[in-house]
Amino acid sequence: MGSQKLVESITENQLRDADFFPDFHVGDTINVHYTIVEGEKERIQVFQGVLIGQKSRGVNATITVRRIVANEGVERIFPLHSPRIAKLEVVRQGDARRAKLYFLRDRVGKSRRLRDRRRGLKN
């Protein structure tokens, strides 16, 4: 077995089931329910924003979510298979023509929004 295969096989049991994730794509607005541990207590925080990038490398898969808080762009990178992610929901489907939406970082105001992805229609 090659090295890469060995690494993958040892982290296999860490992966989330495929049906845990909704069908999401780059450009969608998503809600990430993330467990936050404060000392003894645990609570769930919802981070809503546009999915601007995705990395899929087995257990190293991450998603980058961008939102605007008090006029300041905030990006968070979540490990997709982390047990701390309680839930993922798609709020709105956006139309994106590229895999990484880094151009959104330079956009201000209305141009920050993405077109809706209508079902069955290639706009």
């Binding site: 090295s3 690494v7 490990p79």
Partner: peptide, 14 residues
């Protein structure tokens, strides 16, 4: 040495 990866512990830390 085979390679590196990440691991989630039982309490969720990565």
């Amino acid at each position: 040495k085979i390679g590196m990866s990440r691991y989630f512990l039982e309490d969720g830390t990565n």
